[in-house]
Amino acid sequence: MKTRIVCMLLASALSAAAGAETVVVVSAKSAVATLSKEQVADLFVGKTQQLGGASAALVDQAELKEDFYSKATGRNAAQIKATWAKLLFTGKGNPPKEVSGNAEVKKFVAGNPAAIGYIDKAAVDGSVKVVLSLP
């Protein structure tokens, strides 16, 4: 009986995690088709600053930030903040703009071919294109 409950709990935990799939998106107008996890991580920690031949415009979503960085970079938001503080105060990069909610990220990304952000998979629509899934 006990094992059964544990199994059920595990299963529901897993399905909850699967339901919250985060996807990395660019504008539907972007020429970028797919990105590897490493390429996304390099962009969001400031190691590379170009996307599709232009200067990348990064956007963070407050609600998904912690989850996104742990999946994409293996680092927590505080570590990322410290990394960007280095780049910001050396004039070598600017941290992502932070907005709230899927709709705000889509708005930022849709109109700019050099923009990149992340949203819930369920919120994907025709204005954006998925370049990487982070289950």
Partner: peptide, 10 residues
Amino acid sequence: LALGLGLAGA
């Protein structure tokens, strides 16, 4: 990805 979007700065 260097497909030349040419909109640097947008």
